[in-house]
Design a protein around this nucleic acid. Structure first.
Length: 417
RNA sequence: GGAGGAGUGCCCGAGUGGUUAAAGGGGACGGACUGUAAAUCCGUUGGCUUUGCCUACGUUGGUUCGAAUCCAACCUCCUCCA
């Protein structure tokens, strides 16, 4: 491993953030000599970012931590195009309202990890809609387009794969990387930005910006990517049956977030501790050296720390306590995620199928039926064998709730109101 | 512009008139085993008011008692020719 002199590069390197970099030595020197502004772009394709973006967010956090200036770029403009990278086909076109709503949701996350303001080291949030929306086609082609090589674009994986897989690629999507490249230049002009970071899938897009920057601003710009995050058994990070592991609390509760980290595979514990917590490396080394069941302690610490960063001390402690009661005591924890149903509905009797679908434990009635057959459905810890069972006030426990479980790990409380 | 080939479920991929909600694999979910892990084994994997009905094999129409399978047009991709 290269030994870096700057705090930022050393930290990133030691903690496993670096996958590719356009010029590590020069970048290291840059970080030693000045306060560097670096950016990462986030498209507004959903109301929240998910754990897949967390590595990126942590990088911005470390950037500020080591005395530099992070810039979070909202893709308010580029989201109107849709990044073809890694996609088989164009995503559906989002409406302006959806994009604005998504942007608002995504912004919230950054307040937890960055300090914004007007000072020289305060983080900046920008939106590429500000300069992309007003572009004029012919002007843009003449000023920027002449410096963009189609030959090079065709070599980029995002494009090449599409073509090789015999899938349609529209001019709209093809332009995405040109706009991303232009973003980089624009940020260099506006904020003196010198570095763009991103996931490894963004390497091509980022380099396009570096090339364009060299031609237009005669400044050396840098590119740095993180490794694609997969679990040791090869699955993509953060993708589960119930979808992505969202960061926003209203889309995935702190308890479920905590559980996500608690269920980390053994082989990933050390790697994740380095990437997703701020624990000192010697402490991490101690934790990942644990073996067998003892590793569970390390997983709890991982869950605690990751949840703390995301949702705060209180939420993390509560999630840990809920998990302890549920899994270690087998007791009913009042703080499990819950859904509310009107008292009157309960008195009338709620169908098992409806309850599970409403709780989000199953996708459809048929899904519940299948799980009943498979013995996965339990009410108040008793296995249900009759799919036509109804839930009534008689099912309320002494705590006044009904515990719906799917499998061993998913529990939702049903609360009458 | 011309000739030929292709488009199947979350993904890959078989199927070329009824027995096909569609083989097989992957993934995912559930069960067993464990440590709320991995690996392994087993089961499940379109929806619904479930002995039935509805939706689904690029899109839209058509032929037929009956179509993923035949025909037409369109969309997209590939190969060759101009």
């Amino acid at each position: 491993m290269t030994v870096y002199k700057s705090d930022f590069m050393r930290t990133l390197s030691e903690r496993g953030f670096i996958y590719q970099c356009s010029d590590t030595d020069a970048l290291d020197r840059l970080f030693l000599s000045e306060t560097v502004t670096a950016y990462i772009g986030f498209d507004c394709t959903a109301k929240s970012l998910h754990v897949g973006s967390l590595v990126q967010i942590m990088m911005l956090h470390w950037l500020q931590e080591t005395g530099h200036r992070p810039l979070a770029l909202m893709g308010g403009g580029t989201t109107r195009i849709g990044d073809p990278t890694g996609k088989d086909e164009a995503r559906k076109i989002l409406t302006d309202e959806e994009i604005e709503e998504n942007k608002a949701g995504i912004r919230k996350v950054f307040d937890r990890f960055l300090t914004f303001g007007d000072g020289p080291k305060d983080a900046i949030m920008a939106d590429n809609a500000d300069w992309l929306m007003g572009l004029r086609y012919i002007d843009f082609l003449r000023e920027i387009g002449r410096f963009v090589s189609v030959n090079q674009m065709l070599q980029r994986d995002s494009v090449k794969l599409r073509l090789e897989r015999e899938q349609h690629l529209s001019l709209l999507e093809f332009n995405y990387m040109v706009l991303q490249a232009y973003d980089y230049v624009e940020l260099t002009r506006r904020y003196g930005c010198r570095l763009q970071m991103g996931g490894s899938d963004q390497w091509g897009n980022i380099l396009s910006g570096v090339d364009l920057g060299r031609r237009l601003t005669e400044t050396e710009l840098f590119a740095l990517t993180t490794p694609l995050l997969t679990t040791s058994s090869g699955a993509k990070m953060g993708k589960t049956a119930d979808g992505a592991v969202w960061l926003n609390a209203d889309m995935r509760s702190p308890y479920d977030y905590w559980q996500f980290w608690r269920n980390t595979e053994d082989a990933d514990v050390g790697r994740f501790l380095k990437l997703f917590t701020k624990l000192p490396l010697d402490e991490i080394a101690r934790l990942e050296a644990l073996e067998g069941a003892e590793l569970n302690e390390a997983k709890k610490i991982l869950a605690n720390e990751a949840t703390r960063l995301m949702h705060g001390d209180e939420a993390a402690a509560e999630a840990a306590e809920t998990a302890r009661k549920t899994f270690e005591e087998g007791a009913l924890a009042q703080s499990l995620p819950s859904i509310e149903v009107p008292q009157t509905d309960l008195e009338a009797g709620i169908g098992l199928l409806a309850a599970y679908v409403q709780a989000g434990l199953c996708a459809s009635n048929g899904d519940v039926r299948r799980n009943v057959k498979g013995g996965a459905v339990r009410i108040n810890d008793e296995t249900v064998t009759d799919e036509r069972r109804t839930l009534t006030a008689a099912d309320l426990t002494s705590d006044g709730v009904i515990k719906l479980s799917l499998g061993k790990k998913k529990h939702i409380l049903l609360r009458p109101v």
